[in-house]
Deep mutational scan, measured.
Amino acid sequence: DVEPGKFYKGVVTRIEKYGAFINLNEQVRGLLRPRDMISLRLENLNVGDEIIVQAIDVRPEKREIDFKYIP
């Protein structure tokens, strides 16, 4: 289970104008929005990159997770 405030290693699987989709595993995916990136820009991410993200909002009923990147 993903818990708000905890850090997780994930893989960038898709990049859109509104953010990057990060997979923690095959069943768990969330969104990293540009506003939640500190010292990292969306255009510097590539599909396949491994990054450490912090879960900031977890909505299991909608199967949605918002992430934050903190270097």
Rank of each mutant, 00 (worst) to 15 (best):
I22P: 00
I22R: 00
L42G: 03
L32G: 00
V11S: 07
R59N: 08
E43I: 11
I56C: 06
L31T: 04
Q27D: 14
S39H: 14
G10S: 02
L24Q: 00
M37V: 04
I65D: 02
P71L: 06
P60G: 09
P4R: 14
F7V: 06
E64H: 11
V53P: 00
E16A: 13
T13K: 07
L40H: 05
N44L: 10
A20G: 03
D36W: 08
P34H: 08
E16T: 13
F21V: 10
T13E: 07
L32W: 04
L42P: 04
I15A: 00
Y18R: 06
D49A: 07
Q54V: 12
I70A: 13
K9I: 12
I15K: 08
F67D: 01
G48S: 05
R41Y: 11
V53A: 03
D66Y: 13
V12R: 00
Y8S: 00
N44S: 12
R35N: 11
M37R: 01
K62N: 10
E3Y: 14
R59I: 04
R41H: 09
P4H: 09
Y69Q: 04
F21E: 05
V28F: 09
L24W: 02
I52T: 12
Q54M: 15
I52R: 10
N23A: 14
N23P: 00
L32T: 01
N46A: 15
Q54D: 01
D49Y: 08
D1A: 14
Q54R: 06
I56Y: 15
V58E: 03
E50Y: 15
E50G: 11
E43A: 12
E26W: 15
V47W: 06
G5K: 07
Y18P: 01
R14L: 09
R63I: 07
L42N: 03
S39T: 14
G48N: 07
R59T: 05
F21C: 05
Q27P: 04
D66C: 06
V28E: 07
K17E: 12
I52A: 05
P34R: 11
D36L: 05
N23H: 14
V58G: 04
F67C: 03
V2G: 02
G19H: 03
V12N: 00
R41N: 10
I65E: 01
E61Y: 09
Q54Y: 11
T13S: 13
N23F: 09
P4M: 13
A20Q: 00
V11W: 15
V2Q: 02
I38V: 13
K62S: 12
R14Q: 13
K62C: 08
R14A: 12
L24T: 04
L42W: 05
D1H: 15
P34D: 07
D57K: 14
N46W: 14
A20N: 00
G30M: 03
K17A: 13
I15G: 00
R29I: 14
L45K: 01
E16D: 07
R41L: 14
I22G: 00
G10Y: 01
L24S: 01
I38K: 11
E64Q: 14
A20M: 03
L40G: 06
K17L: 12
F7N: 07
R63W: 11
N25D: 10
R29N: 08
R35K: 15
I15D: 00
V28K: 05
E64F: 13
E3A: 11
R14H: 10
Y69V: 05
D66P: 03
D57H: 14
L32H: 01
Q27R: 14
E64Y: 13
P60R: 09
F67K: 02
P34I: 12
K62Q: 12
V2P: 08
R59G: 04
K17H: 13
D66G: 07
Q54L: 15
Q27L: 14
K68R: 15
I56T: 10
L40V: 08
I56D: 05
N25Q: 07
R59V: 05
V53M: 13
K68V: 08
N46Q: 13
E16L: 12
V58Y: 10
K17P: 15
K17I: 12
L45P: 01
F67I: 03
N25L: 04
D1K: 14
R33N: 03
K6M: 11
E43K: 13
E16M: 13
R14T: 06
L32P: 01
L45W: 02
K9H: 12
Q27V: 12
D49C: 07
G10L: 03
S39N: 14
I22D: 00
